[in-house]
Design a protein around this nucleic acid. Structure first.
Length: 257
DNA sequence: ATGGCACGCATGGCGTGA
């Protein structure tokens, strides 16, 4: 079973490269973030033609998440169901038999003094309660997506300069860690204890992939009963080197069936 | 310290991303 996650930065501007990657890599489940399209305009036809079911929740211009899957999900939940403040389309849960996949696009936070940063920190707290309501740490659960936090110094280029960055500030790392502590293992870091590869490379840094200047802010996290089936996890840097690319790239995990 | 690039939009400049 192959599970992947990708912040696509507009699914409509990258539908052909997406279909090409899926044809080449044959993921069983692919979670997307930043689809940047409202549901009425979601390009599900070519994905259906490629043999995938699609669950999606989006809005115009910003945010948006989708789960593409070979098998049809038994159930889908869109967004927080906690009665709290309305969130943007950033959260999608899909159940495939015993396996539950939670796909999230965590708020970036803009600036550590901005209200969106407080929203980001609180968002992780809401997610932990969401997990409590819908899954158990003893279940096979994958929490994946663009989590917008580099959890360890090894997860960002020049960590000593990032203390005030919204994706590395201690409050963001603590909030993320509280969700990891719910019961997850970081599959990429288990496969690759060394640093040097990231999942996000800023458009504005020339040759950032070649220079190794990026952030590991996309994750595939698994509960123990799923993690014990994990065979490998890797970052596919090739799509990020294409002439027209998202600023993120694909993260993959493979499991014994 | 700033800006660098790419995206979408009742669009040629802005808000957002990280």
């Amino acid at each position: 079973m192959k599970l992947a996650t990708y912040n696509i930065n507009s699914i409509r501007s990258r539908i052909d490269s997406l279909l090409g990657w899926m044809d080449q890599h044959q993921p069983d489940i692919l979670c997307l973030q930043e689809t940047k399209v409202q549901d009425a305009d979601f390009p599900f036809e070519p994905l259906a033609a490629a043999g995938y079911h699609v669950a999606f929740a989006g809005q115009k211009s910003y945010n948006g998440v989708a789960i593409l899957s070979r098998n049809k999900p038994n159930a889908v939940i869109k967004g927080f169901d906690d009665g709290g403040p309305a969130d943007e389309p950033r959260l999608l849960l899909a159940r495939f038999g015993d396996l539950t996949v939670v796909n999230t696009y965590v708020p970036q936070g803009r600036d550590i003094t901005h209200e969106m940063f407080a929203y980001k920190v609180a968002w992780f707290g809401r997610l932990r309660k969401f997990l409590d309501r819908h899954v158990k740490p003893s279940d096979p659960v994958a929490w994946v997506g663009d989590l917008n936090v580099a959890i360890q110094p090894i997860d960002v280029y020049n960590p000593e300069k990032r203390a005030k960055h919204v994706c590395y500030h201690q409050d963001a790392r603590d909030a993320f860690a509280r969700c990891i502590d719910w019961g997850f293992t970081d599959l990429y870091r288990t496969s690759h204890p060394e640093g040097g590869e990231y999942t996000f490379y800023d458009y504005r840094t020339k040759d950032s992939v070649q220079k190794g200047q990026g952030w590991r802010i996309d994750y595939i996290l698994a509960t123990p009963s799923l993690a014990e089936r994990a065979r490998t996890s890797y970052i596919d840097l090739e799509p990020r080197l294409a002439p027209v690319s998202s600023d993120h790239t694909y993260l993959v995990a493979e499991f014994a069936d």
